[in-house]
Design a binder for these strands. Structure first.
Lengths: 360, 360
DNA sequence: CAGTACAACTAGTACGTACAAGTGGCACGT
DNA sequence: ACGTGCCACTTGTACGTACTAGTTGTACTG
């Protein structure tokens, strides 16, 4: 009424065209013949309703197709119990962490709100969306940007960073003992007789600097300082492929290469195989992350394992400590990685590789 | 007041420990000396406020660290302008679609709410979360479950399915002309002299049945009915690897294999290379999706391209047509794929492969 | 039989925003 | 002088839920 000729013009505002209003608690209450407050009690499983009333409320809800309105719950509740997750979908290991976050969050009574970092939107905007949704904490995974502005903001959320680029004051950090991981990788190779062990680093990617340092330290520890070779790269297949081509153009290959992560190792491995270099007979390759990629039968990559489930669990717990436990001091949680030995590493070759084998 | 001894006990309910209340429009209004409604006007960029007032409102917002509360906006607005996205993170092509959805949604004035399908949570629960958040439409990507119950539900959202397993009444579908794609793949191989062209199918995965049929039809069209070989598989690397091992155990390899998707092709390719089978000299391989995997230099896979950006754009447009345009009839949108020829296909081998080359 | 305790309920309000319906003041025209 | 129109603003209410503070009725206690 009062809206003559308004049949087809509700496109811009108003109820989406042709969609009936969704039922609310009041609708259920009216149908059952009780108050809205009692319906609310029933759904929250609080004492104060008879079992008969509970049954009738649930039945009416079913019949009406009722769904609780998260927006209204969020608005009314003092706590949202939501955790925002900022991540990228291009690193298999990060994806594994996101998947592991779901059960971890549920265990602590939290819900996840995902927000993917995509090229076309900046991180600031993504963060704002999460904050607008009243996330109590934000968990970032392997992000490469600076976000110090958030940590100090009034009423800002708790922030837990998994494998961050740098540590920021006011946030909790969950990271891997990269030096430890690199040490295990180098130890393993040295035990197999390797001396010329190269490293493709991750450039400015999260954890890369630590891994680079760990590699150097481990090499020096074994008296192999002269064999230290760091090839610049990043966490993509193509950087591994590029380094492989570079190495193939040289007179002598190293006997082993430790890549910055599994994707990089994949590119290295694939390019070597294409060029007729045998892995691990000619060159041993070690990856990093132990993502699903490393476990594929035809890749079968020795890799430094970062336990995604553990990282996820620890990150959620850190958030819960702040939110539910009142902790205010920053925590720096360092997880120990484990080397998983697979088929891409073996004894160092003793012969020099004939040039003709390469670059056919 | 009225809360004696309440300093440290707000863990269970109340404001998260130690977090000050976030500022609201009323706080801004009080500081500027205007009403909350006027502040709302300013943020919505509606006429009715002087430019001086606007400036002061923005400044106060900045100073207070104000962020609009999405929950309250959602509750009050008649439209949420949110699109829910249900997806899995394990298929590179699906990830590409999600990434492309962001700009597409923004262009139509919508916001995305992501919800990942993970093993540990069922799809029903994931859908419910999206509905609770007032998503006006839900876009599913390559999901394998049945969700007819939603399409017919009272006040249910619009549903757009990208590459669904089966078509459901009441939903829009965006899919690929799989027969067309398969036809192009077979045509390409036949033109290169291939006759023994095998196919690894995707089993019960979305689109697999159509691709299988398309393969059979194209083979028959070229008079190659006798060469039809369908190997059961799925959309993972390991299924490709397994088929590769099966093929290697036989007396004669096909001269070409069309995989169910790129990941499957990857497994096939990697296993062949490991076994000393040369691609494309001994065997040509065609993938499907043209995901990032196919484009890697050392994989360089000829693949049937499904344009992720186009699928995303079309899906959002379909949702907008229903929500803003009032369309109620179902749409079935079929996108044409394009074969992208790369280095994994070449002329068919003419010689028979010596047994000794394989399975060394 | 009064008093108490408890179960089962209701009324009312608040959350932060959007929006409809005003109000007051000023400039303009006739 | 008076109406008209417009700008810049305010008041009040609604969205759907959660939660506090009641209110009723019944059973039990001494």
């Amino acid at each position: 009424m009062g809206d003559p000729g308004g049949a087809g013009r509700s496109a811009e505002r108003g109820t989406p065209v042709g969609r009936p209003k969704r039922p609310t608690m009041s609708d259920i209450a009216a149908r059952v013949g009780v108050s809205q407050a009692l319906v609310s009690l029933v759904f929250r499983n609080q004492p104060g309703a008879s079992s008969d009333t509970r049954r009738r409320v649930f039945q009416a809800a079913e019949e009406l197709g009722y769904r609780p309105d998260t927006a209204a719950q969020l608005l009314r509740r003092t706590r949202s119990r939501q955790l925002g997750v900022l991540f990228t979908m291009r690193q298999p290991h990060d994806v594994g962490i996101v998947e592991a976050l779901y059960p971890a969050a549920r265990e602590h009574g939290y819900t996840l709100v995902l927000n993917a970092m995509v090229d076309t939107r900046d991180e600031r905007q993504a963060m704002d969306e999460l904050l607008g949704l009243r996330c109590e904490a934000i968990i970032t995974i392997g992000t490469t940007f600076e976000r110090h502005h958030l940590a100090t903001e009034v009423g800002g959320p708790s922030i837990v960073e998994i494998n961050p680029l740098t540590r920021a004051a006011g946030t909790d950090v969950v990271r891997t003992a990269e030096r430890n991981g690199m040490r295990q990788a180098v130890d393993h190779l040295v035990a197999q007789g390797h001396r010329a062990i190269a490293h493709i680093d991750g450039g400015a990617m999260p954890g890369a600097e630590e891994r680079r340092r760990g590699y150097r330290a481990a090499m020096r520890h074994h008296g192999l300082a002269d064999h230290i070779r760091v090839h610049p790269g990043d966490y993509t297949e193509e950087s591994g492929a590029r380094v492989a081509r570079d190495l193939l153009a040289r007179p002598e290959l190293p006997t082993a290469v430790i890549a910055g992560n599994d994707r990089c190792a994949h590119g290295l491995l694939g390019t070597f195989l294409r060029a007729g270099v045998s892995v691990p007979d000619d060159v041993s390759i070690v990856g990093y992350d132990d993502s699903q990629l490393a476990r594929l039968s035809f890749i079968d990559l020795t890799s430094v394992r970062q336990d995604a489930a553990e990282a996820a669990e620890v990150a959620v717990r850190a958030a819960a400590e702040r939110l539910d436990g009142g902790r205010t001091a920053d925590r720096d949680i360092v997880l120990d990685p484990t080397l998983v030995v697979r088929g891409s590493t073996g004894p160092a070759r003793t012969r020099s590789m004939p040039d003709g084998d390469l670059l056919r």
